[in-house]
Write a protein that binds this DNA or RNA. Structure first.
Lengths: 155, 155
DNA sequence: CCAATACATGACACTTTAGTCAAGTATTGA
DNA sequence: TCAATACTTGACTAAAGTGTCATGTATTGG
């Protein structure tokens, strides 16, 4: 259970766009220098999100990338999904067949139950966190997120 | 946000031990054949958990691995930790510095806030799931886990 | 004692993920 | 028009994560 590099850097790039002027957007270079990532990598990440319909590109002089929706209409789940994370329960099982063609527990599996409960909870949380919730000082964001998680995993 | 192979297979091996006779334990070969994984890999995973003090090995004829604690005294969090997953917020930041020596958002970071809230929730949930909760038919396990998550991420 | 069983260890090969590069196409403005 | 800007693409290199192997050590039973 780890945050992948794509999730981390992809979200950072998107947040830059969210904080920029919606009409003007930002160029790959600008995002790269603001985030301390290489332009080539930024390009790759933005393209993934463009493919998912979260942002779009404008070519030529004064071009760049722009957000397709308002930050209030874009959830953390949308972003993470665009970046190819958060596999479904079925995908988790398919990825771990051991040295068989399919997992020996395919019919009855208590672990599947655990991963399923967990990933659904994570998905639910991410769906409730909007990009707009992430814009602002860290302390305030933390407060907002805590409320989004309503009596979460803790009793 | 993905379940790693070590988490998946490691938990499966541990669960085999939990279901076996506490005195007799199981040999690496037995676990490997029950799970459809290679003995060499099972060995590697068990060693990680032995290092963490969850299980211990007995050498020689009739040797094998045995659980150190009762399944009711061992949580999913213990297992996942032993397998090297679930990084702390600090580790997440350290792992993603971009092309600088340290992340440009080191002082103020709204994303850190998101990952922190999320991983703490996951950690909390895993701490409440005992290995004994995972022993039994899938349907019943699911029911138990749902209750462990009390009004989780969903409203 | 010694042969068979079974864990112990570290180095290795393989696979996936992360990140870069080079050569290309579209758009603008002078 | 044409030169500068900036996105596009796919192939490539590097790093991390997976999984295997060979060699070694401890224990037991005959």
């Amino acid at each position: 259970m780890k945050i992948t590099a794509q999730e981390e850097y992809g979200l950072r790039c998107l947040l830059q766009l969210a904080q920029a002027d919606r009409e003007t957007g930002l160029s790959v270079k600008e995002i790269a220098s603001k985030e301390g990532i290489s332009p080539a990598y930024v390009e790759k990440l933005l393209r993934l999100m463009a493919k998912a319909g979260l942002i779009h590109s404008v070519r030529g002089v004064n071009g760049g990338y722009r957000l397709d929706r308002k930050p209030t209409e874009l959830s953390l789940r949308d972003v993470v999904r665009a970046l190819g994370s958060l596999p479904t329960t079925e995908e988790i099982c398919d990825r771990h067949p051991g040295n068989r063609t399919s997992c020996v527990h395919i019919q009855e599996c208590c672990i599947r139950s655990a991963w399923s409960t967990l990933t659904q909870a994570i998905d639910g949380f991410m769906g409730k966190v909007l990009i707009s919730d992430l814009m602002g000082p860290e302390a305030k964001v933390t407060q907002t997120l805590q409320s989004r998680i309503t009596t979460p995993f803790s009793v």
